[in-house]
Amino acid sequence: MDHTTLSRRRFCQLAGGGLLLAPTFLRGQSSSGTLTAREVVARIRKHVGVPWRTPTADDFKIGDPDAPITGITTTFMSTLDLLQRSAAAGNNFVISHEPTFWSAADVVSDLRDNPLYHLKLDFIAKHKMVVWRFHDHWHARRPSDGIFAGWDRAMGWENYRVKSDNPFSIQYAIPETSLEDLARDMRKKLNVRSMRLVGDPKLPVTRVGNGGHYILQCMPQLPKVDVLLVFEGREWEAPEYIRDAIAAGEKKGLIQLPHEGGEEEGMRECALWLRTFVDEVPIAFLPSGDPFWIPA
């Protein structure tokens, strides 16, 4: 792996590298005319605007792709609670941005004796559910990354994006506010509870940069912005970087969001998008929600 790469998978999305899969969809609609998960995925592949890549995390994780579906739930994370709510809503096809089995690649070989794994499997089998992951290609969607299109819409920042050819350098020019007021606005609009902040609450803010998860994304952005947003980042990276920037006399701030805060709204966007080419079954966005709360 090259020293400068962010991650294999995320760069794969961008570079357009990797083998193209031949569009061999084994089955579409079943003989009875009932819609299947596999047929929905075939339509997604047709509409996403980029060639399908391999390797990819975007695959069926559990359940029978050829079984009839009753409804579709889009969500950020297919937690057990989310699966229960989806089943209660009558939607047996879950499209999840993040893993189902607690690792980036949904590796289950270590989980064979794990009671929680079996409990989740049993629930999925009992309710004839199927889970498909939609991560890499929803980020790679053309004309724009579906996740951050949803984030912009939730914040009302669609017109504030600073033009850039680098999809890892998303920046916004916003009307002047303070770090604290921006954080309050974001907490409300993104429906998050576990936001953590670095910097002077009164710091004037007009430029905001999306630092993603990694210091490698944060570092090139900082000189151009007042505040960096990070979601799901390790604490020895961005928080310590911004703390030192401030100690060195720079006027900077950090908003560290839960992962959902940075990406969940993108799955609401996904439901809207799916409705433009799937009309046989109901489609609902169900938030998996901020996993954390912070005691007062």
Partner: peptide, 8 residues
């Protein structure tokens, strides 16, 4: 497993 960033 993409848990943290590669070193800059």
């Amino acid at each position: 497993f993409w848990r943290n960033s590669p070193g800059p």
